[in-house]
Amino acid sequence: MNWLLGGGFTGSVLSFLYPVLRFVNPPAVPEASVNEVNAGKVAELKPNSAKMVKFGARPALLIRVNETEWRAFSAICTHLNCTVQFHEAKHQIWCACHNGLYDLNGQVVSGPPPKPLEEFAVHIRGEEIVIARRA
């Protein structure tokens, strides 16, 4: 008898808790999967400078290394998600949060980041710059 009551009670409590737990877990919002964005005009960037580009809902970093060389990366630090920036004097990519440094190939030079930055392809179409996710 006690066993039945106890079991029934526990069961009912669980049946209240389950929907609550599911409710609290945010539903996955389908991300408009962006694979390519327009990153502005060639003339807007001087050699050895960079700018932030919206890549869907996340930031990307476009770098003009010199006259002809361009690089683009996801600007999300692989350490703990801060947004990285181009460090002109050092010629490297820098994350201010915990002093992570990446070289211009996105490889970790020093600091806590465990993985290289995700690199995007840069296409120059006339005056237009397009950056795209690599396949």
Partner: peptide, 25 residues
């Protein structure tokens, strides 16, 4: 959300000990 993290990002002081330890590892 589209600007780089400024220098000097740090949590409130009561998380600083953990924060600094993580930075050292």
């Amino acid at each position: 959300p589209f600007a780089p993290a400024p220098a000097g990002i740090r949590p409130e002081w009561y998380f600083l000990a953990e924060f600094y330890t993580l930075k050292l590892i």
